[in-house]
Every structure is written in structure tokens, then in C-alpha cells.
Nucleic acid binder design. Structure first.
Lengths: 173, 173
DNA sequence: ACGTGGACTGAACGATCGTTCAATACTCTG
DNA sequence: CAGAGTATTGAACGATCGTTCAGTCCACGT
């Protein structure tokens, strides 16, 4: 509270006066960040660019909220997953998305992948180029990701079959 | 400190006696979690199973450490990325990994994808089945991920070209 | 001009935090 | 059994936390 007030150049008491409590301020921050993300058009996979280009503070805050399980963040996550699942279903029907055995799991995993560089932004940025706030860094990772999603990373299904074997061995134990 | 001591059934003073300070306890936790992960054999992509099956508290702690930029967690992240890049290079040479235009970015993105369900474990678990601690839930997501990496998600390169177009338009502005 | 309401502040309160310290209980070695 | 070292504790200290409150300053409608 005192740090926030100092950054804003006001007294701690004023922050309380406007937001009621610390929790009130936190909810206001949630709404602000969530609105900032949603305002980038419809919340679906096409928002990729907006999310990746989001300013670093917003990225950090969203990552923290997602991890802490904030109610607003959970709602946003579910929202993105639902729309992504629909979007992938359309693609499947139109033939530009491969069929899957578990549409829900694929949508959830896809979204978590989409959000991964966002949550792990500091780590990714550190290894991909000095400035984590630099857009070019995020773009570089995004291109690498799209390459993997287009045509795949592996040329055969050796890891998929290996995983299946391991999984069956584990679960039968 | 007091909560940790209460959970351990001892006094707060004893925790300080053993770990010196709160920071000392935190570093000890870092080492414990990191060792627990590393003990699952070599730290490379084959550790996928171990990481995914790690107990939920460890997962949560690692996620938080990764996000907070703990030194130990940063070292671990870099370590995994380096070994993954080597591993992918071998696969590329042997023909079971597709070539890429940016090996480093691909390794970083791959690792962040690997860690995503781990960091976002609560969200993923919530949408994939009631119990986030349940192994079956993580396995379901892992299979969906491997499917996407094997043969790809998209059947053509429409999104890759679309992304390239958007990126060039943005960067020329 | 006046007063009413909201923006805004400084000081303080109680709670909680990490930490210190003297003192006690316990467990070995000689 | 005596003694040394370790484990363990309760109480307290100072710092920081979110919050309260009485009061000041300022803008604006009548």
C-alpha cells in the first residue's frame, strides 16, 4: 500500500479512500488488466499478437494473478480455453486443424502454451535477448512456436508411442 | 515463518536456529525442490514424466520460484534449455526432429511449453478434471501436447504466413 | 460570498512480521 | 555420573503492515 501510494505520489490514506481496502485495489487492478487484454478485440487465438506485445508490467501481473488463482484470472483463463476449443473445432471441420482424440485437453494445453512465454516472460526474455520488454524477443519465441505447431516438431511418432508405453506401464502398477 | 513452524509443530525460533534466517530457509527450499527434480535422472526432455508427476506442492513452489526469478530457479531453467537445445540438435542430425530457422528460440519455447502446465497447474487441473493433484489429469494434457508436437496442429502454414505478414507490417511502422 | 462535498493528508493504532536472546530440556561422550 | 554440546522454547523487540480518523485544502453550485 505504502509503495503503491509513493509511486503514485500520494499518501497511503488516499489510496484507501479511493479503493476502500487493499483487496479493493487488487480487484481494481484485476479488472484493469483483464480489460486491457480483452480490449484487443475478441479473446481468441488471434489475440496472440496483443498478448505477446502487452507491456511487461501487465504481463507480470497477469502471470502472478494466474498463479495465485485470482478469481478474475481464472475466469479469463476459462474464457480463453472455451473460445479456443470452439475455434479449433471450426478449424477441424474446415480441414486446417488436425483431428484429436481429446479436444478439451488439446484446447487447455494449447492455451497454456500460449500463456507460457507470458508467465515465464522473465526467464524467456533473459535467454532470448537482453531486454525482456523488447517486442522482438517475444516475436522470436512466437515464430519458433508457430513453426512447431505447423507441421510438428518431430518427424515421426516415436515420442508419442514411447509416452503411451510409459503411461500404460505406470498406470497398470 | 510462524506458519511454517506451526506446520512443523515447532517454535518459530527453532526454524531460525536451523536455517539462520527466512532467506536461508528459502534457499534450502530451493535446493530441496531442485534436487528433487534433478534426481529424476538427467535433466533433459525425458524428465517430462518426472516433472509432470511431481507432487503438487513442489509444482506450486517451482512455479512461484520461476516467476519470482529466484536464482536457483533461473539456473535450472537455463540448464534445461541448454540440454534441450543439444537434444534437439541431435534429433535434427538424426532426422527425427525437423530443422528450424532459430534453434535457440525453439529450445526456449519448447521448454516454456514443457513448464507451462506445471506453472499453470491449478488452472489446467481445474479445467481438465476436479483434482489438480491427480496424475491422470497431467497425463491427459501431456498426451494432447505430444499429439500437437507430432505431426503438428495445423495442416497448412496459413498461421505462420499470417504471423509473418503481421510482424513485418508492425516492424516496418 | 458562502457553504457543502470530495480530494487529500499526517499521525497514530493494532496486528503481524522476522529476528534476538536468555534459559531450559535433551542427548550423547568421557 | 558429570559435563559439553545441541535441540528447543517463551518472551520480547523493532520494523512494517493495512487501516482508521480527525482535520485541512480546494473546487464548484447557489
Amino acid at each position: 500500500m505504502r509503495a503503491v501510494a509513493a509511486d503514485a505520489g500520494v499518501s497511503p490514506a488516499l489510496v484507501l479512500h479511493h479503493f476502500g481496502s487493499k483487496e479493493g485495489l487488487r480487484q481494481a487492478c484485476d479488472e484493469h488488466v483483464l480489460d486491457a487484454i480483452r480490449s484487443g478485440g475478441e479473446v481468441d487465438a488471434s489475440a496472440l499478437g496483443h498478448v505477446l506485445r502487452a507491456a511487461t508490467p501487465v504481463r507480470r501481473y497477469l502471470g502472478r494473478a494466474l498463479l495465485d488463482g485470482t478469481e478474475g484470472a481464472s475466469v479469463l483463463f476459462t474464457e480463453i480455453v472455451d473460445r479456443t476449443e470452439e475455434w479449433l473445432a471450426v478449424g477441424e471441420a474446415e480441414g486446417w486443424v488436425r483431428p484429436t482424440s481429446d479436444a478439451r485437453a488439446r484446447a487447455v494445453t494449447y492455451v497454456s502454451w500460449l500463456l507460457a512465454p507470458l508467465v515465464l516472460g522473465d526467464q524467456v526474455g533473459r535467454l532470448l535477448g537482453g531486454d525482456p520488454a523488447e517486442t522482438a524477443t517475444a516475436v522470436r519465441g512466437a515464430r519458433a512456436g508457430l513453426e512447431m505447431l505447423t507441421g510438428g516438431l518431430f518427424t515421426d511418432d516415436r515420442w508419442l508411442t514411447a509416452f503411451t508405453a510409459v503411461d500404460e506401464r505406470e498406470s497398470s502398477r
